[in-house]
Every structure is written in C-alpha cells, then in structure tokens.
Amino acid sequence: MKRILFLAALFASANAIAAEAPPASAQDQPPHNNVKLWQDVRSGQPQFTTVRGVETGVLIQSRGETWRELRNGPVTLYGGILLCVVLAAIAIFYKLRGAVKLKAPLTGRKMARFSYFERSVHWSMAGSFVILALSGLNMLFGKHLLLPLVGHEVFSWLAVLCKNLHNFVGPLFLFSIVVAFFLFVKDNIWRASDLHWIRTAGGLLSGSHVPAWRFNFGEKFWFWIGLVFVGLTISISGFVLDFANFAQGRSIMQTANIIHAVFALMFICMSLGHIYIGTIGMEGALDAMRTGYVDETWAREHHELWFEEQQRKTAARESGTAPASGEPAAQS
C-alpha cells in the first residue's frame, strides 16, 4: 500500500514536472505534431533565412489583409462620400448664402496684408498641395473613376506621372509647411476676440459683423488643425512611405498608408472650405494673397482690430521722421 502511494506520488510529481517544463531543451523530444510549426508560421515573427532583406524571415504577414480591407473598403467608400458631401455642402452654401460682399464702397486706399515672402510660401504650399491632392486622389479613386474613361494604357502612364510627382513634391510641401508655421504662428495665437467669433460662428450665417485681428478664428483653426496637425501628420506618414530605404517593415508602412489616406482626405475637405472662402466665397479675399494688398474697406469689415492696429502704426510712422513710402510695411 505504501509502495503504491509512493509510486502514485512519484508519478504525480513527474507529471507535474513534465507539464511545467516546456520541451525547449535539446534533450526533450519534439512534440509529435506540427502545432508549433504552424503557430510559428502564422505568428509573423521573423525566422531564420539566408535571403537578405527586410522581413525576409517572415513567412506570413497577416496584417496586409487588414490593410487591404481598410483601404479598399471604408477609406475608399467613406472618403469618397465625405468628399462628395463637402463639395455638395459648399455648393448649397454658395447657392443659399452667396459670396460675402463688401457693404461699404471701396476706398481705393490699399493696405499691405501679405509680404512677397509670405505669398511665395503660401503659393508654394498651395501649388504643391494641389499636385499632391490630385495625384493622391488619382491613386485612391482613379481606378474607379478615371480608369474606365481613359483606359488602362493612358491611365497607367498618368499614374506613373502622378506617383513620381507625389513622391518628389511631397518633401516640398513639408518644407513650405514648416516655413509657413514660423511665418504665421505669431498672428495665430489665441486672442480674446476669438471667443466672440466662435459664439457667432464668424457671422458666416448671420452676416453680422465680428471684429478680428489679422487672422480670425476660422483662419486660426485652419492654421492649427489643418496646417500644423493634419498637415504634419500627412507629411510624416508620407515620408515613411516615400523613403522606403530605411528598412521599415510592412506593418509600419500599412499603418502609415492608412493614416496618410485618412488625414489627406480630411485635409482635402478642409482645404475645399479654405479655397472656397478664399476665392468665390468672399469678395476681395483672393486679392490679398494674389497682390498682397487689400482695400481699407475690406480690412475694416473683415479684420477690424487688425485694421485699427495698422492705422495706428501708420499714423505713428507718419508723425515720426520716416516718410511713408510706397513699399508695403513688413507685417512680421
């Protein structure tokens, strides 16, 4: 009896040891099935291979399927819907509200709003954006919209052009964003008047007059959320994709691609609003960025606080020794 108990105890302990110790050491028998093999195959972990390269040791990388589902599914579908909705909303808004006209007649007196350098930065940013947006949209939607129209040969030729333009213009966009940030950040800091602007939605719907400094809150929103946050996110994720020679793996590129696409679509939607209000949406807005000068009426009606500040500065300068020159005063 004692012996049986002892044997049972021994057996139990031996079993316990066998259960605890994984068959990892070289002495142990491999398990008599291939469970571990196929688990390793599906794990996506790099294994041994003599072929040199990035992730050559990974047999199966499953996240590509997720990327495919996301890109071909929600990103394309809802991104497309979003773009259409924004375009339609702007069109309806224009139909209902019309352009924001100046109430008072033009004075004919011009005041400097953007320096030559500021305008160069803005237009290099805008130009590179338009190229990037069109070529990027072509990559996402071209297969569904443009390809059936022009055929595979022409579309492929166009897509090569788009891809190379996208890859080479991208860095210029980031460069202009960084320069623009330092150029405009001073006038985009929060002011007390912004709260009033938010409460009245800028008077965009009511048409009421809301005083603002050099940039109103709408412009500040575009600056901080659009240019700084979304713009930088797109640029950084774009760099991950653009410079594929830093041995980054597939999973980081898949993530970067989804982020790039989602944020780029958001940026395009926001920029549509910006372009609308900067061109047909508001009388005299385009002249500010095109020529660098605005009429005093425009300044008083849209940026009253800035206008008064500039008037005070001009008055101070004229009362001083320096005569007023024809050159626009530096706005920095």
């Binding site: 571990k36 195959v41 294994q47 041994f48 003599t50 072929v51 050559t56 990974v58 047999l59």
Partner: peptide, 8 residues
C-alpha cells in the same frame, strides 16, 4: 523565392 527555417 526564399527558404525560411523555423525553430532553427
């Protein structure tokens, strides 16, 4: 083509 060795 490449050969991958598992549990090398």
């Amino acid at each position: 083509r490449r050969v991958v060795t598992l549990s090398d």
